[in-house]
């Protein structure tokens, strides 16, 4: 019997900010992501996509609703168990890479293992594996300020997957990169997803990046707006994304224009 394995499930997520003047950042978000999926989250600025990712990332508890990662609600864990949970099950990639400046690229990559107290031999082995997969062996000894943005993001991805997480979370991973580097990084995400099978959730505003996903969810004003699936052709998918965005933007661009 075929059973779909649900890695992430969001049930009726609400997020309300502010005390006196309340602002509802997320309204009744429901989401289910299966093992091995590569999901993109898109929406205009201020739509709540980063808030949503923070809620999934276990760093911003929802005001109400339930987050289940691999069937477990991380917000019910105590602080140190939650830390262990992040260390074992989650991987993070950020827009501004968030590498530690005092460490070399190699040291940054093994950091999750260091925190876990792994053996040095294990670290070396895993570092070698992940570095060769990501093609960054040559920069392992370099410091963070000696590498390009694309290389830094590769290193950040290596750090995010070295401990084989259950769920890889990426927040605008291509936001600080030029188009060539962005393409490389997205191809990397795709190949990692395909080859290792790591479930990936990515927030982006870039349709090109989003077109690498299997599925893209659109949110607007904190609410679910639409979702589209990728077919055979990435090019076609890209066009579909653009279409939804223009539909979204028809109303949203007024707002974002004002905000800018």
């Amino acid at each position: 019997m075929y059973c779909k394995l649900e890695i992430l499930k969001l049930k009726h997520i609400f997020k309300i900010y502010g005390e006196k003047v309340q602002h509802c950042a997320l309204k009744d978000i429901n989401l289910s992501i299966e093992k091995g999926e590569f999901v993109g989250i898109m929406g205009p600025s201020g739509s709540g996509k980063t808030t949503l990712l923070n809620v999934i990332s276990t760093i911003d508890p929802p005001s109400s609703g339930e987050v289940l990662i691999n069937g477990e609600n991380p917000y019910k864990l105590d602080n140190s168990k939650l830390a262990f949970f992040r260390r074992k099950k989650l991987g993070f990639v950020f827009q501004d890479f968030n590498l530690i400046d005092t460490l070399t690229i190699g040291e940054n990559i093994v950091l999750p293992l260091t925190l876990d107290g792994a053996k040095v031999s294990t670290m070396d082995k895993k570092l070698k594996e992940v570095a060769s997969r990501l093609n960054i062996e040559s920069i392992l000894e370099k410091r963070t300020y000696e590498v390009s943005g694309g290389q830094a993001q590769r290193a950040a991805i290596a750090r995010a997957i070295i401990h084989s997480p259950l769920l890889l979370l990426a927040d605008e991973p291509t936001g600080n990169l030029d188009s060539k580097a962005a393409k490389d990084v997205m191809e990397l995400f795709e190949s990692i997803n395909r080859e290792i099978g790591v479930t990936t959730v990515m927030v982006t505003h870039d349709p090109m990046s989003a077109s690498y996903c299997h599925r893209v969810i659109f949110i607007k004003d904190g609410q679910f707006f639409n979702e589209i699936h990728r077919g055979e052709s990435r090019r076609k998918f890209y066009q579909q994304i653009i279409d939804v965005l223009s539909l979204l933007g028809g109303e949203a661009s007024d707002i974002s224009a004002v905000r800018l």
Partner: peptide, 16 residues
């Protein structure tokens, strides 16, 4: 503080 934020999101406990 940002560095500590990164470390904690990577799973560092308060004790660590």
């Amino acid at each position: 503080s940002k560095e500590f934020g990164i470390l904690m999101i990577l799973g560092m406990t308060k004790k660590q």
